[in-house]
Design a protein around this nucleic acid. Sequence first.
RNA 1: GCGAAAGUGGCGGAACUGGCAGACGCGCUGGAUUUAGGAUCCAGUGGGGCAUCCCCGUGGGGGUUCGAAUCCCCCCUUUCGCACCA
Length: 865
Amino acid sequence: MKPYDFKEIEPRWQDFWRREGLFAAGPAGPRPDRYLLMMFPYPSGTLHVGHGRNYIMGDALCRFMKMRGDNVLAPMGWDAFGLPAENHAIAKGVHPADSTRANIDRMREQFREWGIVYDWDREIASCHPGFYRWTQWIFMRMYERGLAYRKRADVNWCPSCKTVLANEQVIEGACERCGHAVDQRELEQWFLRITDYAQRLLDDLDHLIHWPERVKLMQANWIGRSEGVELDFPVVGEEAGEPLKVFTTRPDTIYGATFMAVAPEHPRLAGLVAGRPEEEAVTAFARDVRRESSFARAAGLVEKRGMFTGRFAVNPFSGEKVPIWTANFVLTSYGTGAIMAVPAHDQRDLEFARAHHLPVRIVIRGAEGPADAAALSEAFTADGTMVDSGPWSGLPNREGVERLMAHAEEQGFGRRQVNYRLRDWLISRQRYWGTPIPIIYCDACGEVPVPEESLPVRLPREVEFRPTGDSPLASSPEFVAVDCPRCGRPGRRETDTMDTFVDSSWYFLRFVSPRLETGPFDSGEANRWLPVDQYIGGIEHAILHLLYARFVTKFLHDEGWINFTEPFARLFTQGMITYPAARCPRHGWVAPEEVKDGLCPRGGEKVEVSVQSMSKSKLNVVAPASIIERFGADTERVFTLFMAPPERESEWSDEGVRGASRFLNRVWRLVQETAAALRTGAGAPTVLAMAGAPEAASGGHAELRRQTHHVIRKVTADVGENLHLNTAVAALMEFSNFLGGYLEATPRREWDEGGIARALRAFVQLLHPFAPHITEELWQDLGGTGSILSAAWPTWDEAALAREEVTLVVTVNGKVRAKVTVAAAASEDEVRRAALGEARIAEILAGRAPRKVIVVPGRLVNLVV
RNA sequence: GCGAAAGUGGCGGAACUGGCAGACGCGCUGGAUUUAGGAUCCAGUGGGGCAUCCCCGUGGGGGUUCGAAUCCCCCCUUUCGCACCA
């Protein structure tokens, strides 16, 4: 028997796949088109086994679909712009274009070593002018529709990365990339008007039935729709002027509004206190709050502070005068930047009222209170009946919400309004390595878009890109200086670049016609392939990338470029792979393999070992090369898919890898030895030829046939329907255990040769998506010609799964007491008699007749005594 | 605080629509074989009385049911998301 020499086998088949071009998507035809997409990676250089999970799973699905006869589009590309490449370039003095290219080459090679195959003819990179030209083009289309615009605004600024960030890139007040605290700066920035699509982005989540609930929920929360009413509160002394506007979802509590509060940044604040005794203190307070860490303030970590302005406003419902305060817990970014405060029914308002001795008035009461406003320590936010609310008293508060909103509209002092938490998408970045924003400023014409025929606006190579806070492109006079396309006079280019999420918001469309010169994508091809049938990626993109991609898709749909409104029909978010990491209190992360007796190799301090997601910075990555070297790529693949359900976070286990290796070695021996035993001589037919013999009534070998059909059904369903790849591998292990046992227990002369040949054929095919190299090799040894991928996926026959006899569990009062074997077709009555006839059961019953007998066909008999 | 998901052997995890809990694998124990290796093979492996019989057992407590890991109620824990959103 030839040995399982994976080091020889694997590269050979990798070359074969590449040479044969088996993975190029075909033209439209009778086979169903399927678009399978892995989130395109950022080319960071080296991939670890955690990255592998995503791509190995995708490759297994891709192979499965191909074998089932689908016409599969499985492309790969590179999310190649972005800060890490630029930071790395600054640190190492390499140009980001060069390091990115080198990284891409290395990663492409790693994919090959994993046995992962893509339609490489469609490869794209977002940093290539042939790609970003169309990123700019999409920006221009949005600009024409007023969906891309520039405004001066308070924006998130990361002092460490020296760039602005989108709201979505600020995590707990810190920069998503570097973890540095983010502050606010007022800057002129480019935005995309995603808020115009807020409602549709929310509504269409309902149609995404194959998306994880979790992701949809996160998006819905992020969009954050709330329905309410905007109410006018006239300012006392300025009755003729603009009233203060507040937004509330609880107009039913308005009779309990004992004060108002405006944000310290509110544009009316200065006017309200101008020339008054409070002016100085209020102005100082406002300045003070603006200096407060925006992160702490937005997170509600700072104490609620405020100051009375000395002014009053009139409650439009009650006519009551209420004091106007300014308070740090009121945000300009939501609603109108001013609130009516109802301490009895809002916790924040209550805390503020208590701190500043403002009145608390209960206007909603449930069955059990609250009764005493003075004693109230927690705001009452449940439903109840309106009290102390003028003509509305006695109404259930839910009804009150409706009635008061209607009344406010009739009277003209209020308007129903829907508010969203979602903000417009801030896309300009003051960094070098990104898509230039194609706008020219002209003193005469103002903001002028770069004409389509002048795209792409190329990113110049020789630029000082060390971050200073100004856009690096501004330091390149050749880039900046340009004639105004409209009037021809000297103008200057926009020097900000786009957020990389703009690139990734449409890349999946480029794959359908990656070299098209006349547009970003061919509409016919896009409509043919999309929406993506299966999208696979990390949960970390649940909001950002997936929301932006949905937005851009809807926009392109509205422009008539595509006929679908959602980009990804089915989404799968796979879990991270974790591994122990060691952290020294003085030296930070240290390599876990260097830790001796729990002590830091550098200083001897006690290190803390914890399981962390794999990352280069935590020094806890497992390199695929080390696994491939020792066990082969197929072993890594099998273990990766077997270790846990793919959506779950899971710890890498070196012992587990050995288990996968043992399995493949057993498979090798089993198939080789059995094939050799089947082929009795040089002239004998191949195993595959033997398997092609008509299905015989196999009599005593029915179990072999049954198990074969069972594993075909199980693997097909697990992979094709549920993505339960771990249980599919388990089923294959079980089957190989069964087959080994069967062959050992059956003398050679009694072998059901056709049945064994069919079992081997099906088994090798079913295993292929998981372990492609070894199965191609075994396929050859079974007599296959060409790739196993070209052979039709095995099918099963439900009839073959049926047993003639079934073993039923007999339970007494729900406890298992015996087993009986009856004919599968036995009637309920026969089953009952068989159960009662069982010696052990008769013993337990001791002559008593069961009160009740429940027969579950094919499963059990339960006797109630 | 709000929202969501999840708690099953020493470990990763199985279990269709409520029907034998612990598939498969790791680890462990014993044995075989071996030029002793991270090889291979066989047997065992939830806990307990340890006897092939019984009891207990899916985070805790209650309930529905002939029967509950699965359904319902209460509680605990963990993880994740959002977080002063008016």
